[in-house]
């Protein structure tokens, strides 16, 4: 990579790493080690394709999409990981006051299938539209709608309608 381009990449990576990491923490339901690994992999992929990425309309959105796909690919490679999720302790119903929201929410996210979780993170953390989300997870809009409403139903069940008072700003 030539120096000017390398500098441009370094600037981009420094600006986006924090956000990507936080997204990865939500995607992995709080597994910070895996989150770090996913972000490194994402930045690595962006690095390899930087000549092309830097010309894209929105390199930040591109990086987020790469992160999502890297996460999903990781989950597919380790489909047995789905069983580990089942081993999570029972999720509190959200009405309890002694459980911090962060833990409750992460545990609830962990109970969702990986792809549903990705859809939730893209829709409600990244504020992406259904169509943008569909593009990022390589699914049709109809499939994303189905996943989204299924995930919302499950989260409502796990967290309670109010999501606890912690959700209030």
């Amino acid at each position: 990579m030539r120096q000017a381009r390398a500098d441009e990449y370094a600037e981009f990576a420094a600006a986006r790493a924090g956000h990507l990491y936080r997204s990865a923490c939500l995607l992995t339901a709080g597994d910070t080690h895996l989150a770090e690994d996913l972000v490194q992999e994402t930045l690595g992929r962006v690095y390899v394709r930087w000549a092309r990425v830097s010309r894209a309309d929105n390199p930040a959105a591109y990086a987020q999409t790469v992160l999502t796909r890297t996460f999903l690919a990781h989950r597919r490679r380790r489909s047995s990981g789905e069983r580990a999720v089942e081993a999570f302790p029972d999720v509190p119903d959200g009405s309890g006051t002694d459980t911090p929201l962060r833990l409750t929410l992460l545990q609830a996210l962990a109970r969702l299938p990986a792809k549903d979780r990705a859809v939730v993170v893209l829709r409600y953390w990244e504020d992406r539209s259904i169509e943008e989300t569909a593009g990022a997870v390589n699914a049709s809009s109809a499939a994303v709608r189905t996943r989204c409403s299924r995930a919302l139903g499950r989260l409502r069940e796990l967290l309670g309608e109010d999501i606890g008072e912690y959700a209030r700003p």
Binding site: L101, L105, L106, V121, Y124, I163, G164, Y166, R168, P169
Partner: peptide, 9 residues
């Protein structure tokens, strides 16, 4: 949910 995700994330 969006607010909770932003606080948690």
């Amino acid at each position: 949910l969006s607010a909770a995700l932003h606080r948690t994330g």
